[in-house]
Each structure stands twice: as structure tokens, then as C-alpha cells.
């Protein structure tokens, strides 16, 4: 999953990820998207452009059904 904050400066960036991702997927230039999201520093910008989200691949290996209280006893 995308980091909640920039590793270097600590700026909160988690809430910008989905907008960034959908706008870049629809063909916008990442540079323009980051500029309009007000992500100005290089440390925060690299968080976006270098991120690879692989949680969807892990999702198919996790057990969805809840273990429940009975299981623990």
C-alpha cells in the first residue's frame, strides 16, 4: 500500500494517492498531476512516481473468511 507519509520530510501524502493514480491512469502527465496536487518537494514526488502497489496480488493469497471466536477457544 502507498505510504501514509513521505519517508524523508513527513508530509502526509496518503490521501493524494488515489487521485494521482486515477489521473495518471487516464493519461495525464505525472508532472502535471503532482504540481496540481501541490506536491512540490522532490522527496515527496519520488514517493509517487516510484511506488508499485502490489497489495492486490497478495490479496488473492490471504484467507478472507474470518477465523471467528470459536477458532480461538
Amino acid at each position: 500500500m502507498f505510504p501514509v507519509r513521505c519517508f524523508t520530510c513527513g508530509k502526509v501524502i496518503g490521501h493524494l494517492w488515489e487521485e494521482y493514480q486515477s489521473r495518471v491512469a487516464s493519461g495525464e502527465d505525472p508532472k502535471q498531476v503532482l504540481d496540481s496536487l501541490n506536491v512540490t518537494r522532490i522527496c515527496c514526488r519520488r514517493m509517487f512516481i516510484s511506488h508499485v502497489d502490489y497489495i492486490d496480488e497478495l490479496l488473492s493469497y490471504s484467507r478472507g473468511l474470518s477465523l471467528g471466536e470459536d477458532y480461538r477457544q
Binding site: V12, G14, H15, E18
Partner: peptide, 29 residues
């Protein structure tokens, strides 16, 4: 998302509601 965090004190709440925290598989809790 962070908006799923509910506080007992209504003055305290996540500043941004749409920070993804994790993802659950179908049927996950």
C-alpha cells in the same frame, strides 16, 4: 480508509478521510 477510524471523542478525528490503510479480501474483517 482513515475515515473508518471512529473516535469516542467527537473533537478528535482523522484530518484526511481518504488515506488508504489496508485492503481486505472478500469476506475479510
Amino acid at each position: 480508509y482513515s475515515k473508518h477510524l471512529v473516535c469516542r471523542d467527537e473533537d478528535v478525528y482523522p484530518v484526511y478521510g481518504n488515506i488508504p490503510i489496508t485492503k481486505l479480501p472478500p469476506g475479510g474483517k
